[in-house]
Design a protein around this nucleic acid. Structure first.
Lengths: 344, 344
DNA sequence: CTTAGCACTCAAGCTTCCAGAGTGCTAACG
DNA sequence: CGTTAGCACTCTGGAAGCTTGAGTGCTAAG
């Protein structure tokens, strides 16, 4: 596919992309020769640029502007040219410091991770809350709110808490509730949540025959609790960092961004889709389903704990992104979260 | 203060403000006479307008534009001219319908309230989470996460849940933890949370002398839990509604708004400050400390349950807001939330 | 006191113009 | 034959000037 690109063309493409990333302005042939000493004249560069445009790596906004990378151009750059540098001492320190503070719960921790992503990259940081489904049951607790309303508090192995108000048909006494609690805790502890659901449905069918009303109530209750666990939270930090970039200095663009960031569920889906892959990944422009995020790129990485909790984090910025800096930031932050989760 | 305003001046001021609210364009003398049949000529209107400008109710953006209301103008309008209409059938229905759906927890309920505020007004809806401080203790539960990490789950009378991970110095056994749980629950149930804090500090001093290590641990633990309850969540819905208003069709304005909406804690504080007052209140422009919300008005109302839970909700929009519609929407929504809270 | 008339002002939109940056092509050069 | 200098051409963006329309303030007459 790229066989036509000789060394010189690659050098020139790289120069153009890096200049554009740095300045945001279309890059002309003269600029290339001035800033990078390639030992060739602007005219030669022009010839090569015409070829690169032909090949789909560049395009010109209009005849008398310089060239700008296309998505294909960025993709080629990211895949074959980037040298992922080590994190600078300062960045590494910034990330690790944000994890050294003790006594924070999972939620605060993830939020901080988002903040550090945003602060170190100066783009927007996204961190998804681990899917509750994937976690392991540790403890359930019922608190009676009124005669027919019961609050269920569900705790996962990782200390993640979810709660839900359940309305029951006939009142359950405090004693019964306690028995149900003990029964469920002894029965379910240590099971992955996804299995818990199946188990309950199965047991309900079997127990039906036994007519043990307490057990029946227990299952009825837990079915309600596990049935509709709210999924999907995402922390977005530093979205306003993106505002000052020249590529979004336009009313319509900005409205679009604003609207997209308002719909958290879009972002949840976005990160969810990126979860599958291991390692750090770069999605450029239309490579991800970017409703309202045209002209953006997303660098993601997943975090996973030994106990199976997993989620995704990433940095969202313009396609004109300093990939070589952002990629190690994302990778390192994901590693730190994983480590934190295992530390329990 | 307003003694100089005769009936005619008031009529003209009202006409100007209502026209401006409707169109967003500065209102000229000719427009006033055309749209409202006051039986006077544009020249007369001009004279009156000059007086109104003198008095600080109006100003002109420049000599050859019409007049625009000042904050003082809006204030006068809201205080003395507005007739708060009853809610139209449709609006009332929309609000009540959003409360008729059963089985939602407090959080979802408040979020929905925000959505309905935003949808019915087409501005932004804000709803603050009730202050945990003001609620009544119902139940505490400890779950051991690891030898030194304990998850505390705190439930208020209203079914509001907060949780916190606490790190302890020396390991606590499961049995001890259970005793502590029982002890605290029997001791604290029914107390307002603000009193709980004081109580714990007091008891800790007294118990110190007794050297009962279990009790000491109990208090130590609960002190940590109650010490730093995270306060302040606010649901912001439909912020992007504001984007299409002509008064914010400007890059700088929009960035400011974006940044302000990103800092939820600012909005929390804002609503918190408005909580004190009972009934529905209108804050115009600089009347509230609107960091980044210049040119906006805020209509708020507090919701209170019999059990003492309270919070604030409101609609944030441009100062050029359809107050006569927004005020009853806010008032009715607050009533509905209060009713819902009491229904437990 | 009200109003018609008039001169004046100002913003916004339009055209025109110019400078600057960059291109593509061609012809000369090593 | 690849490379380069030169040149004509194109296009954007900003500045300057012009026009239009809406609206005002003032004055003098009703």
């Amino acid at each position: 596919m790229y066989r036509d690109l000789n060394e010189r063309s690659r050098k020139i493409l790289e120069a153009i992309i890096e200049d554009f990333i740095a300045t945001g302005e279309p890059v002309g042939s003269r600029t290339v020769t001035r800033r990078h000493h390639l030992g060739i004249s602007p005219a030669t560069v022009r010839n090569v640029m015409a070829d690169l445009e032909e090949a789909g790596f560049l395009y010109s906004p209009h005849t008398s502007a310089g060239r700008v990378p296309t998505e294909k151009g960025y993709r080629f750059y990211v895949d074959t040219m980037i040298e992922v540098r080590d994190l600078s001492f300062n960045l590494r320190k910034a990330i690790e410091d944000s994890f050294s503070m003790g006594g924070l719960g999972l939620e605060d921790r993830l939020k901080r991770a988002g903040q550090v992503l945003s602060a170190t990259s100066s783009y927007a940081g996204l961190v998804s809350y681990p899917s509750f489904e994937a976690t392991v049951f540790r403890h359930i607790e019922f608190v009676k709110l009124s005669s027919k309303k019961i609050l269920a508090v569900l705790v996962s192995q990782s200390g993640n808490v979810q709660n839900k108000v359940v309305e029951v048909q006939k009142p359950i006494s405090k004693g019964e509730l306690e028995k149900i609690t003990n029964f469920l805790n002894s029965k379910l502890t240590g099971l992955p949540l996804c299995e818990v659901k199946g188990l309950i449905v199965k047991e309900m069918k079997e127990e039906k025959a036994l007519y043990d009303s307490l057990l029946q109530q227990a299952f009825e209750l837990s079915r309600e609790v596990f049935e509709s666990q709210t999924e999907g939270t995402v922390f977005v930090e530093g979205a306003s960092n993106i505002l000052d970039l020249p590529e979004f200095a336009d009313l319509e663009c900005m409205k679009r961004l604003f609207r997209t960031f308002e719909q958290k569920n879009l972002l949840v889906d976005l990160l969810e889709k990126c979860r599958s892959a291991e390692g750090t990944h770069v999605f450029i422009g239309s490579e991800f389903d970017s409703c309202g995020l045209e002209g953006c790129s997303l660098v993601t990485s997943s975090y996973v704990s030994k106990s199976g909790i997993s989620g995704t984090l990433g940095i969202l910025g313009p396609s004109r992104m300093t990939y070589s800096v952002v990629i190690p930031i994302v990778a390192h932050t994901a590693r730190q979260i994983s480590r934190f989760l295992d530390a329990d």
